[in-house]
Design a protein around this nucleic acid. Structure first.
Length: 584
DNA sequence: GCCGTTTTCGGCCCGACTGTTTTCAGTCG
């Protein structure tokens, strides 16, 4: 059974292989477009196929794509892909993702050097065989080596949102078993880390075996790696490893605490326990009998003082319950001991979204739809931030187009007095730090958002100066996705973030926490630093369609990992207060 | 391969940068 993300991946891979093979570029794009439709679609393709829904009604899905999707859903494979991989090695798809390597170069590397895998490419590049190829050179070769190193660093980790898509149906499936009394996902997933390596599933059940059998029988399981007693480990078809532990009610809280981690957090807790004559394990909290070595292996000796719930585990250590997002040993244990845990921001605190796009540039939905989407989510305001003109590929707006857009905004605003539409633009920061819109236009915007979308490889000093110049523009309010990273895809550009944050502070410019799960930019530790410096922070989805507005929770989760309270986040404030604090 | 129609073909976001060239292909967003 395939999820939409997996179907999208297959379609995308077919497109990439066709591209390497030199196929018609528009045909290639058709596969990419189809993937972009399938991936975020609310209804699973398998449900649509089962119910006989017309797939060709979806944008970018014609007769051919519909039949591909049908085939994938029913057989789990795609004939077209199999045929194609007889022509072009499947592994070249991965190569194309390296910065500096596109379809043409991948083709050349393969045909002229016989390179098919990343490992072979690495060997060839390190041996200096790549630079001698026509169209390649020393710099490209070095770039490839760097790209591979970066790729290997993140091997096997899934973006949180990707993991969500795989884990949610699995949890639903597990719940359908009558023996499952309670189920929780622990680990880095529960701490809402930006990427996760594997999944830890905890289940309370009286009788473990039927639950274990149910788990290993999940149709998306590719391989059962281990299954005995009360624990199992499987590999899903997506490559995600999932561990299951079936537990008795009495130790559920202790196990949940233990398997949620982090390692560093748990070490700190156990140290605290020892100082109180206690021992914490995944089975519970125990009082160490007089004269016994607290590090002894026999974990079940001594009186059990806690373990059924996480709250009582923490309470036994004289600690308030600590939200999972904080459990990184960044001072949360000390804070919990001193009653100084922060009141963390929640989704309910958010009163508006300050970055989104419409069909005026590269968004999928019109202004009216986006506004209604924000109304439905209970927001008081939103900022419409279509791109500026130098981003030609997105259909960025020049001054004239922007004025036209304002007329439409005024109309939509008149129809929706219940929400305030803030006129804004995501203005490109040009090479020299100047902005991609005339000052007389900028001055008329309610919110001025600036960001970088070009020249990612400038030397650090130059990049820093470029950003500083933009921040110093007196009209600028928000620096969007400040580091430019794409999780698992692209490293941040090189610049001095500390200097930029200080400059934001001096100039009253807020930094964005871009909530899109492929960005989450700034990241948690950087946000902590921003907050420490007194820099204002906003959380925005960067939505390109109505559904993307729901990505706000990823931003909030990341903010919680950074200890942010509602007061630290400007768009938790009512409209007038927000506008006031953007100006100062 | 999709789409829309001026309805079964012809068009499909496009401009800039980089490193390789010696006038530009390939990559990127």
């Amino acid at each position: 059974m395939m999820e939409n993300t997996e179907i999208a991946k297959v379609l995308r891979d077919v497109g990439t292989l066709l591209e390497i093979d030199g196929a018609n570029p528009f045909r290639v794009r058709a596969y990419e477009n189809a993937a972009r439709t399938v991936e975020p679609h609310a209804v699973p393709m398998r449900t649509m196929v089962e119910s006989g829904a017309k797939l060709t009604d979806l944008p970018g899905i014609g007769k051919e794509m519909a039949s591909h999707i049908q085939e994938l859903v029913t057989t789990g494979a795609l004939r077209v892909l199999q045929d194609l991989t007889r022509e072009v090695p499947y592994t070249l798809v991965e190569m194309v993702r390296l910065p500096g390597v596109g379809p043409k170069r991948a083709n050349k590397l393969w045909r002229e050097l016989g390179v098919e895998t990343i490992d072979q490419l690495e060997a060839a590049a390190k041996a200096g065989a790549v630079e001698s190829l026509a169209g390649f050179g020393k710099k490209t070769q070095e770039r490839i080596v760097r790209g591979i190193a970066s790729l290997k660093k993140r091997a096997g980790r899934f973006r949180l949102a990707h993991a969500d898509q795989l884990v949610e149906p699995l949890v639903e499936y597990m719940r359908t078993h009558e023996g499952v009394r309670r189920i929780e996902v622990a680990g880095s997933y529960r701490r809402r880390m930006e990427t996760v390596g594997d999944i830890d599933l905890l289940v309370i059940a009286r009788d473990p075996q039927p639950v274990m059998d149910h788990f290993t029988a999940y149709e998306r399981v590719k391989k059962i790696e281990l299954a005995s007693g009360t624990s199992a480990r499987v590999m899903l078809q997506s490559g995600l490893q999932v561990n299951l532990r079936v537990l008795p009610p009495a130790s559920y809280g202790a196990a949940l605490q233990y398997f949620t981690g982090s390692q560093a957090h748990n070490v700190k807790l156990r140290r605290r326990a020892v100082a109180r004559g206690l021992r914490v394990s995944e089975d519970g909290v125990f009082r160490v009998p007089e004269g016994e070595d607290p590090d002894a292996e026999d974990v079940l000796s001594g009186e059990r003082v806690a373990g059924a719930s996480e709250e009582d585990v923490y309470a036994a250590l004289e600690l308030a319950w600590i939200p999972p997002e904080l459990r990184e040993d960044r001072g949360e244990v000390e804070a919990a001991a001193g009653g100084k845990l922060p009141e963390l921001v929640t989704l309910d605190h958010m009163r508006g979204d300050l970055q989104m796009h419409s069909t005026w540039s590269d968004g999928h939905d019109g202004i009216d739809a986006m506004v209604k989407g924000c109304v439905e989510r209970g927001y008081e305001y939103l900022a419409l931030t279509d791109h500026s003109k130098s981003l030609a590929m997105t259909g960025g707006l020049d001054a004239e187009a922007l004025r036209e857009q304002w007329r439409e905004i005024d109309e939509v605003q008149a129809a929706h007095p219940e929400i305030r539409i803030l006129k804004s633009q995501e203005i490109d920061i040009l090479r020299d730090g100047s902005l991609d819109l005339a000052d007389e236009m900028i001055e008329q915007l309610d919110v001025v958002l600036v960001s970088i979308h070009s020249l990612f490889d400038l030397p650090a000093a130059q990049q820093t100066n470029r950003i500083l110049a933009a921040i110093r523009h007196p009209a600028v309010h928000i620096l969007a996705h400040p580091t430019g990273r794409l999780i698992n895809e692209r490293e941040p550009y090189q610049f001095d973030l500390e200097e930029v944050l200080c400059c934001c502070k001096e100039n009253g410019v807020a930094v964005e926490l871009n909530a899109h799960p492929s960005r989450l930019d700034l990241k948690d530790t950087q946000l902590m630093r921003a907050r420490e410096l007194g820099v204002k922070i906003v959380i925005s989805t960067d939505a390109h369609r109505v559904r993307d507005l729901d990505l706000m929770h990823y931003g909030v989760e990341q903010a919680r990992r950074a200890w942010l309270a509602p007061a630290d986040v400007l768009n938790t404030r009512p409209l007038q207060e927000l506008l006031g604090s953007l100006e100062t």
